[in-house]
Amino acid sequence: MKKLVFVLLLMSAAVLAAENGMAGYVSRYGVEETTKRLVEILRKKGVTLFKVIDHSEGAAAAGLELRPAKLVIFGNPKIGTPLMQCSQTLGLDLPMKMLIYKDEKGVVHALYNTKTYLMWRHGIAPDCAAESQKKMDKAIKMFAKYATGNLKGEGQKR
């Protein structure tokens, strides 16, 4: 049994290392419009919007330059709380976040932590709050697709 657990942990680590725990979509829009669309869908779906942090603005205030980058922090306690009941350390990564930024080539991305990474990081078993895990995963993907203009699946994954 110990060998099986060890092998599964190694396999999980390999998968997570490959994806780096992040996923997202390339946006058809600029950072401002992508952020606006994300906020729009969050409000429409009744998700709590906690904060939009403008990293570029913060950099400028410090006399530095940074390509456009905004972090949108949002959540739904009906989904997040059951997951934190599985592992309260998940509160370190909740509420959810999505980074919308322009890369060095001028391409705009909407990036988020994957469910697989979060569950692995906090040691949450697949059967603990399984419905919340599924809802969180489905919601973050849908929000990213909407924000980036990729709802019909024709969009480019990051």
Rank of each mutant, 00 (worst) to 15 (best):
M11D: 00
V5Q: 11
L92T: 12
L66P: 07
K134Q: 14
Y29W: 12
K70D: 05
E32N: 14
L94R: 02
G21N: 02
S27D: 07
N150Q: 06
L151V: 15
K2V: 13
M142V: 14
K70E: 12
V52Y: 02
L94Q: 08
Q88T: 13
F6R: 09
A17H: 10
L8E: 07
L9N: 00
L10S: 00
N76K: 09
T89S: 15
M1E: 14
G30F: 04
I140W: 05
G149K: 09
I124K: 02
M98T: 11
A14F: 13
V26D: 05
R28V: 05
S132D: 01
T114C: 08
G30D: 15
V47C: 08
G75E: 01
N76C: 01
F50A: 09
L42H: 04
Q156L: 14
H55K: 15
K102W: 00
K135M: 13
Y101G: 03
C86N: 09
A125L: 14
L71Y: 01
M22F: 13
V108K: 06
D54N: 11
G80L: 02
R37Q: 09
I53Y: 10
T114S: 11
G155N: 07
L94A: 08
G153M: 12
E104W: 07
M96N: 14
L118F: 06
D93T: 05
K138H: 14
W120H: 11
V47T: 15
L9G: 05
M84K: 02
K2N: 14
R37M: 08
M22W: 12
A14I: 10
E33Y: 05
Q133K: 07
I124C: 05
E40Y: 05
R67P: 10
N20I: 03
M136H: 03
L111F: 08
R37S: 00
M1F: 14
K51F: 07
D127C: 00
V52D: 03
S27T: 07
A17M: 12
T148K: 08
N20Y: 07
A129F: 04
P95R: 02
A17F: 11
N76P: 06
S87M: 01
E19T: 14
M22P: 00
T35K: 06
P95V: 00
K115Y: 03
S27Q: 08
K3W: 04
M142E: 15
P95S: 08
L16R: 00
L71W: 05
M142S: 15
L83K: 04
G106H: 08
A13D: 00
Y146T: 10
P68V: 03
A144P: 05
L16N: 11
K78P: 00
P82V: 02
K45A: 13
G123L: 12
K44S: 12
K3E: 15
K145P: 03
R37H: 13
C86E: 10
T114D: 05
R121D: 08
D54C: 07
T116K: 15
M136C: 02
T35P: 04
D54R: 02
L118D: 06
T34E: 03
G153D: 12
